[in-house]
Design a protein around this nucleic acid. Sequence first.
DNA 1: GCCAACGTTGGC
DNA 2: GCCAACGTTGGC
Length: 147
Amino acid sequence: MKTEPNEFSIDDLKRVKKEMWDGVRNYQVRNMMRDEMRVGDFALIYHSNAGAKTGVAGLAKISKESFPDPTQFDSLSAHPDLKSDPLNPRWFCVQVEFLEKFDKVITLIDLKSDPKMKDSKLVKKGNRLSIIQLSQKEFEHIVKLGR
DNA sequence: GCCAACGTTGGC
DNA sequence: GCCAACGTTGGC
């Protein structure tokens, strides 16, 4: 799950323990959160736009399954969607809970040069989704690198 | 700051 | 439904 660390980082998640993953306004990503994520699923936290520290920063888990993203109805939020009907909401989010911060960031450069990651959606060009699915093996490999 | 690679919008 | 124009993302 991508986040810009100057907006919300793994350190912020560690401090607040749990956070609503709101603001997603992409249908594919919404569908992943709404239809596939379940309580207890693991999620790697990825720092984007972080210069040399762009990469995977830590581990979290899903602590609450999808619910309507309240920020879509808030005209003062960063991503209001006034066309979304409160009785039939368009956007959903999940809640994420901190598990651990990795000792070092596994940089995108590391991952791109890693043969075990060569088939991963994470290193494929053109991916702009803020949530990217990994295989079990890819996930376990990154966790091992992080620890 | 640049720009490729998207996704969305809206006229037709 | 098509597609040009536009806006956004995110690595570099």
